[in-house]
Amino acid sequence: MTTQKTPAAEPAAVRARTSAWRRRRASAVRFWRQYRTHRAGVAALAVLALFALLAVSAPLLVGSGVADVTDAPGSPLERPGAELPLGADRFGRDLLGLVVWGARVSLLVGLLAAALSVAIGTVIGVTAGHFRGWYATVLMRITDWFLVMPTLVLAIALATVMSRSLLTTVVAIGVTTWPTTARLVRAQTLAVETRPYIERARALGGGHWHVMTRHVLPNVMPLVLAQTTLIISSAILAEATLAFLGLGDPTVVSWGGLLQDARDAGAVSAGHWWYLVPPGVAVAVVALAFTVCGRAVESVLDPRLGVGR
Score class of each variant (00 low, 15 high):
305 L>R: 10
26 A>H: 09
133 G>F: 05
273 W>F: 15
276 L>R: 11
297 V>D: 11
29 V>G: 01
252 V>I: 11
148 V>Y: 08
162 M>P: 06
203 A>P: 01
36 R>P: 06
234 S>L: 15
135 Y>I: 06
84 L>A: 02
210 H>G: 04
265 A>G: 12
142 I>P: 03
67 A>G: 15
24 R>P: 12
130 H>K: 05
112 L>H: 12
108 L>H: 02
212 M>Y: 01
197 Y>L: 00
226 A>C: 13
11 P>E: 15
31 F>Y: 05
115 A>F: 10
227 Q>A: 00
208 H>N: 10
74 G>L: 00
196 P>I: 11
44 A>W: 04
244 F>W: 13
305 L>S: 07
110 G>F: 03
20 A>F: 04
73 P>G: 03
154 L>M: 12
168 T>M: 05
237 L>M: 11
257 G>Y: 01
117 S>N: 14
306 G>L: 02
260 Q>N: 14
294 G>D: 04
163 S>P: 09
100 V>I: 15
14 V>K: 12
184 L>M: 01
228 T>Q: 04
52 A>S: 15
292 V>K: 08
57 S>M: 09
141 R>S: 08
72 A>E: 04
173 I>N: 07
84 L>M: 03
16 A>E: 09
225 L>S: 04
229 T>W: 06
80 P>C: 00
153 V>Q: 02
101 W>G: 07
296 A>K: 12
214 R>T: 15
256 G>A: 02
255 W>C: 14
288 L>T: 13
284 A>F: 10
144 D>P: 11
177 T>Y: 11
98 L>C: 08
168 T>Q: 03
226 A>W: 07
287 A>V: 10
15 R>P: 04
294 G>F: 07
66 V>C: 08
268 V>N: 00
71 D>F: 09
213 T>I: 04
147 L>V: 13
145 W>G: 14
194 T>S: 10
227 Q>I: 04
298 E>L: 14
27 S>L: 09
68 D>N: 12
262 A>H: 08
194 T>V: 08
191 A>N: 01
35 Y>I: 02
189 T>Q: 09
63 G>Y: 14
26 A>P: 08
196 P>R: 01
128 A>P: 06
76 P>K: 00
202 R>N: 09
81 G>T: 00
43 A>M: 14
111 L>E: 05
279 P>L: 12
74 G>K: 00
